[in-house]
């Protein structure tokens, strides 16, 4: 007999809870055929969910997996999944809280740079899937008269991201993704990373001192003169022409405008 709504409401809630917690009993009403048991049968779903999500995290965070080792990564991922299952079916968006999880994961407390490596991997994937746009061409900038340059504002390319880390996160990320040893990298060195997708391939660069502040200000919509002035006040040796040429080569921006301020950033 079908049960009443009152009894069966939320049966998927119980099913879902039991999927993520093997200590919970089988959800009510789950049986094998012809009076057979269903423990091992239900375990197939538990296994599918856990293994597929561990595999998804391994795909999203390959550098972290290589740094901690596959077995450790899979055991740790299992704990993360139970704590923070995906919020949507778009699996490449999963793992937003993984960096924070790593940061607070006691067994990894001697490797504090791992969280920023994970943040770089999330930024890499976000850049991979970001909207398409042609990078700003140097010629566009070249036609602006010199006395108008200070007032130029830029539109960030959808893939552009900056990550500032108190650790050598960029060097460690790059070495791990290229399957190189970490020899010679001092983890406690401050590094800033720039993630872009200039020619439909994601690129990660390390930024010179001051460039993160400079590019961050431009991405936020500040005019070029203001961003340069603030940056050089903090970093007197900041090489502005080199930074401009590097940002164009990296494809940080998709457009620029000579005069109109971005309304969102006007007081």
């Amino acid at each position: 007999m079908p049960r009443s709504d009152a009894v069966t409401a939320g049966e998927q809630h119980d099913f879902g809870a039991a999927l993520l917690d093997p200590d919970l009993p089988l959800p009510e009403g789950i049986v094998g055929p012809h009076g057979k048991k269903a423990e091992k049968r239900f375990a197939v779903y538990r296994n599918n969910v856990t293994v597929s999500l561990i595999n998804a995290l391994a795909d999203i965070f390959p550098a972290v997996q290589r740094l901690v080792g596959e077995d450790f990564f899979r055991d740790m991922a299992r704990l993360y999944i139970a704590k923070e299952p995906p919020g949507s079916a778009v699996i490449f968006e999963y793992g937003g809280g993984f960096a924070a999880f790593l940061q607070n994961f006691e067994p990894l407390s001697r490797y504090p740079y791992l969280a920023d490596v994970a943040r770089l991997e999330k930024a890499w994937l976000a850049a991979f899937h970001a909207a398409d746009a042609a990078p700003l061409q140097p010629e566009t900038l070249a036609v602006i008269p010199p006395n108008g340059l200070a007032e130029i504002r830029f539109t960030a390319h959808p893939a552009a991201r900056i990550l500032q880390s108190p650790f050598a996160a960029v060097s460690i990320f790059t070495a791990s993704r290229e399957q190189r040893p970490l020899d010679g990298i001092k983890p406690a060195t401050h590094e800033d990373g720039l993630i872009t997708r200039p020619f439909d391939a994601v690129e990660v660069r390390q930024l010179p001192p001051g460039a993160a502040k400079f590019l961050g200000a431009l991405i936020a919509g500040d005019p070029l003169g203001e961003a340069a002035g603030h940056t050089m006040a903090d970093h007197p040796g900041f090489d502005l022409p080199a930074a401009i040429s590097a940002m164009l080569e990296a494809g940080v921006f998709s457009a620029c405008s000579a005069s109109q301020p971005n309304p969102e950033h006007t007081p």
Binding site: P2, D5, T8, E11, Q12, H13, F15, G16, A17, L19, L20, G29, Y45, N48, V49, S52, L53, A56, P85, P86, G87, S88, A89, I91
Partner: peptide, 17 residues
């Protein structure tokens, strides 16, 4: 479900509801 996405195709009971 409200709790999240399970990344697997889970079964339903076959009834009128």
């Amino acid at each position: 479900h409200d709790a999240g996405y399970f990344n697997d195709l889970l079964p339903v009971p076959y009834n009128a509801r």
